[in-house]
Simulated assay, not measured.
Amino acid sequence: MGSTNYETLYCGTQSSLIRAKSLSLIAHNTSSMIKSMTGYGKAILETPQKKITVEVKSLNSKQADLNAKVPWLYKEKEIEIRNIVTRRLERGKIDFYISFDIMDEELMPVINKSSVKNYYRQLSEVAEELGIKPENDALAIIMRLPEALKSEKPELTEEEWKNVAKLIGDALEKVDSYRIEEGKALEADLSGSVSRILGFLEDISPFETERITKVREKLTTTLKETIGSDNVDMNRFEQELIFYLEKLDINEEKVRLRKHCDYFSETMFVSGSNGKMLSFIAQ
């Protein structure tokens, strides 16, 4: 029964350690708080001219892996946008999207009067040279020609960029809040796993003495059954037994495991990104 209990405790300890390791791989820490790397945030800004949407998704990743989709209007700010996102989120596989819809009718295509007049003058000259009258639908033909309509692309103003930068910050704030909430659950789970490991560590101690006694009895019985009790040199047997039991001693492993648990608990609340350190300790 003692052996079975010992194995159960050992397996329980290993299971908790593996659980702690798997959770620490996705843990992220800033401002003395564990954060998950999983998050989602969306922010929308509507003005008389545009409707701007920013969406951010984040999953687990060892490094900051940013995939940004930025429309032509904000392309000049793409590097700055990337810096804002990576500084705030630090790690994770991040998908960043920004889009806009034009709401202002003034931005619709307009007639290029100079081109239309030039086209009409040339058609009239050709008609005169050919001795024919210009067609009544000449204007409809001209409007289908290149450059008859022109679209003026809006430029990014400093005021609009400030609004967009704030919108990006709002979306990232929502991602961060999501990470914090999930991080609280991770923190509770990790702390519980560490506590269970330390509890199992204490429960192992009573079985160590019993284990040594059982090993001694088993070896003694085997020797007597094999070569007979009269042929056993008990002094030599005790010497060999000491060497054998030293190899079975797990005190060093217990000390190391306790130290790692303490270090893991301390590291969870150290400021800065420490997911990699937690993963290393859990190994």
Rank of each mutant, 00 (worst) to 15 (best):
T4Y: 12
N5M: 14
T8G: 10
L9R: 13
Y10T: 13
G12T: 08
G12E: 13
T13E: 07
S15K: 08
S16T: 08
L17D: 03
L17Q: 05
I18M: 09
R19F: 12
A20M: 15
A20D: 12
S22W: 10
L23V: 11
S24M: 13
S24Q: 13
L25P: 06
L25H: 12
I26K: 14
A27H: 09
A27Q: 11
H28N: 13
H28W: 08
N29W: 06
T30F: 13
S32R: 15
M33I: 15
I34W: 04
I34G: 07
I34Y: 07
K35M: 14
S36M: 10
M37H: 08
M37I: 07
T38Q: 08
T38S: 07
T38H: 05
G39T: 05
G39P: 01
G39L: 04
Y40V: 00
Y40F: 06
Y40G: 00
Y40I: 00
G41K: 03
A43M: 05
I44W: 01
I44H: 02
I44A: 01
L45E: 05
L45N: 10
T47C: 07
Q49H: 10
Q49E: 15
K50R: 14
K50C: 03
I52K: 04
I52Y: 04
T53A: 04
V54W: 08
V54H: 08
V56R: 02
K57E: 01
L59I: 02
S61E: 09
K62H: 11
K62C: 15
A64T: 08
A64P: 10
A64Q: 06
A64H: 06
A64M: 12
L66F: 08
L66D: 09
N67K: 10
N67H: 09
K69W: 00
K69C: 00
V70P: 08
V70W: 02
W72R: 11
W72Q: 11
L73A: 09
L73W: 07
Y74A: 04
Y74D: 03
E76G: 04
E76W: 01
E76P: 00
K77G: 06
E78R: 09
E78H: 04
I79M: 10
E80D: 09
E80I: 13
N83T: 15
N83A: 14
N83L: 11
I84R: 14
V85M: 07
V85T: 05
V85R: 02
T86A: 06
R87S: 15
R88G: 02
E90F: 12
E90C: 12
E90R: 11
R91D: 06
I94L: 02
F96V: 02
Y97A: 01
Y97W: 01
S99T: 01
S99V: 00
D101V: 02
I102Q: 02
M103Q: 13
D104N: 14
D104S: 11
E105D: 14
E105N: 13
